[in-house]
């Protein structure tokens, strides 16, 4: 399985298609942190929200790089659909974590993070921990959204783009604080809000459960679609 992960990563990097999501993240983070300093929790809350659609998009690109017939050859070679699916998701984790690392490190390079400004503000350390939590929490649902939007799952690239764009719009439209159905959307805005508010055990636990549930539903959806298309 490691060999398949390596081959897919090399293909993703060699086609140059890894550049588009990378540049997008750099531009957006540059805009966020270029305007001045912010406290860690607030800054990381925004960057986690921004990273969500980019990780999903990056995963979709990575999956779509592999021709359909090559995916069949990989499936036979690695020993079946289950192992091919696991290898694909593990492959997507590598560039996703790379984007997370960039998103967490860049504000320090740009001098965009500041400590507490007023009494009662969360400490720098708790802001950083909340930020790391938010970024890592959003990786599984974002990655699985990208997987669901891949050609292997939905049949063609145009349909995949519609799924990706639709879910991202849904996340912003339905994920607001006053939404009657916030659970319908990927847990993007609620996670960002929980991060900005600092480390409070209650909201963080709720958001962790929400993201895990959303990721589980997306995983079941992805596996079902792959098995149906197999």
């Amino acid at each position: 399985m490691t060999a398949l992960i390596r081959l897919r990563l090399v293909a993703f990097l060699r086609t140059g298609r890894a550049l588009a999501p990378l540049l997008s993240v750099l531009v957006v983070l540059g805009v966020i942190y270029g305007g001045g300093q912010a406290q860690a929790a607030e800054a990381y809350g925004f960057s986690a929200a921004v990273l969500f659609p980019v990780v999903a998009w990056q995963t979709q690109i990575l999956f779509n790089v592999e021709p359909d017939t090559q995916r069949q050859l990989s499936t036979v070679a690695v020993g079946g659909l289950g192992r091919e699916i696991v290898a694909g998701l593990l492959t997507a984790l590598v560039p996703a974590f790379a984007l997370v690392a960039i998103a967490l490190a860049l504000p320090w390079a740009l001098g965009g993070i500041t400590g507490p400004q007023r009494p009662g503000d969360p400490s720098l350390a708790s802001g950083v921990v909340a930020g790391v939590w938010a970024h890592l929490l959003l990786v599984p649902p974002a990655l699985l959204l990208g997987a669901v939007a891949s050609r292997a799952a939905v049949g063609n690239a145009a349909r995949g783009l519609a799924v990706l764009a639709g879910c991202t719009v849904l996340a912003f439209a339905v994920g607001t604080k006053d939404s009657p159905v916030p659970w319908l959307a990927p847990p993007l805005l609620p996670t960002a809000r929980a991060t900005v508010d600092g480390l409070a055990a209650g909201p963080l636990a709720v958001q962790t459960a929400f993201a895990a549930a959303w990721a589980a539903v997306a995983l079941v959806g992805y596996v079902t679609l792959r098995r149906r298309n197999a």
Partner: peptide, 12 residues
């Protein structure tokens, strides 16, 4: 498994 058409559009 040897497919009818090998997918040569790969960066290797």
């Amino acid at each position: 498994y040897v497919p009818e058409r090998f997918p040569a559009d790969q960066p290797f």
